[in-house]
């Protein structure tokens, strides 16, 4: 992956497959230059055994081939900067879901640029218009937020978030905030 936003797109799709109703993506840079990425969902969750396997590239849930590179690549990207990746997951009936947290040192020479995060968010929303997304991106220079539940309220049930016109509105709406 050339941009962190591509890892985010890839890993957030796991939450989609987990049957999430809402996916919360947040990027926060603190004053010492550490970026914390969290992708949190209310999907079906994973067993503890799966949790311990998913960062192994030779583990995957898909059936087309025997490798799964999504989380291993994100873990590698974080660790290369001196950061880390952690996973929390629960299959509890009352409170199920998964949280992926990755911490990066943005001052490291190996820190991959975040890249086109707007594109990532738009692609996620248009690819799964039935799911809600919360997005938050905060640093010294910007504070950006989006909640598709608000958009859905304005659009009503008839108009899908996947409509190209809606997608362009979302993209512009995010761009204005940077």
């Amino acid at each position: 992956m050339k941009e962190l936003s591509l890892n985010i797109l890839d890993v957030a799709k796991n939450s989609v497959s987990a049957g999430a109703n809402i996916i919360d993506i947040s990027l926060v840079v603190d004053e010492s230059g550490y970026l914390t990425l969290t992708i949190k969902d209310d999907g079906c969750g994973m067993s503890q055994q799966t949790v311990s396997n998913v960062t192994n590239p030779f583990y995957t849930t898909r059936t087309t081939r025997k490798v799964g590179m999504g989380l291993p690549l994100l873990k590698l990207a974080a660790e290369q900067t001196g950061g880390y990746l952690s996973l929390e997951s629960s299959q509890d009936m009352a409170d199920h879901g998964t949280m992926v947290k990755a911490v990066f040192n943005t001052n490291s020479i190996d820190f991959m640029p975040v890249g086109d995060i707007i594109s990532t968010i738009c692609v996620l929303i248009s690819g799964s218009p039935e799911i809600d997304f919360k997005f938050y991106d905060k640093s010294d220079t910007h504070c950006v937020s989006l909640d598709t539940r608000e958009l859905r309220a304005a659009l009503g049930n008839e108009v899908s978030l996947a409509e190209p016109e809606v997608g362009m509105w979302i993209s512009e709406y995010l761009r204005e905030q940077y």
């Binding site: 608000e150 304005a154 659009l155 008839e158 108009v159 409509e163 016109e165 809606v166 709406y173």
Partner: peptide
């Protein structure tokens, strides 16, 4: 500025096309 009112306008426009 992009506003939610613009989404409501898209909704109205779409309703005829759906």
């Amino acid at each position: 500025m992009k506003t939610l009112a613009e989404l409501a306008a898209i909704r109205e426009k779409m309703q005829n096309k759906v």
